[in-house]
Design a protein around this nucleic acid. Sequence first.
DNA 1: CCCTATGTTCCCAA
DNA 2: CTTGGGAACATAGG
Length: 259
Amino acid sequence: MPELPEVETLCRQLRPVVLGTRVLKGLILDERLGTMADPGGKKVLSVLRRGKTIELKLEGDLSLLIQLRMTGRFHWQEGNDVPPRARLQLSFSHGNLFLTDVRRLATLKCDCEGKELSPGKDPLEDLDHRRLFEIAKRRRLPVKNLLMNQKVIAGIGNIYASEILFRAGISPLRPASSLSLRDWTKIIGAARKVLGRAVRCRGTSISDWRDLFGEKGEYQGHLLVYGRAGEACRRCGAKVRRVALSGRGTFYCPGCQAG
DNA sequence: CCCTATGTTCCCAA
DNA sequence: CTTGGGAACATAGG
């Protein structure tokens, strides 16, 4: 479920809660998650977002890298009740951090080497239209698929890709190679606007996304095309269309995104 | 039974 | 070797 704004929301909420405090105990509750070096007794040094990955850096060069994938969620609970579908528990003196996950697709990687991750560029920081143009000019895949390539841009998923392209006025079906430098400038501007606002709204809760404290986000009220197939475009009144690209629902307005 | 679902990775064909 | 698409992963809901 979580894309950049949802993961960023979790990181921002986690920091004041766990930064500088000590993990008392770490428990893997679902074997499928894999193994983890014992985080017991270690202080949380930083909480970082890299694309859609959350990195908890602990003392002793121990990093926990968590990808929530489709249905992974973090919960902070002051009591010791284990929520349903819990897969990971980190206990602190003042509460517990749980990872729950209905579909069990989330992953945990434990890195004791202190290695740095190298995902794509972050759309809220170092995105450069010239670089994207160079990457795109030899690619024939639809521009939406390139936007969702985490090695190119880290953090954009299926919901925000449609929203960003709508705001940029560019059809998601266009081959990446057909975009001009100016098109990429528009996309970067739209991405910053959409993602920035979504972060301030604490994400999009159209089905089951909830933040660290179980609260819904508010960006679902700002969606202009995602999930609106057959409804009138809020900008031009044309019917919003849904097509499938690589099996993913893709929404756009044929009026506003003709080119 | 069918299809859909906010993600990533593996496999295969071009 | 690269590119891009589909299946798989696992589960729920319409």
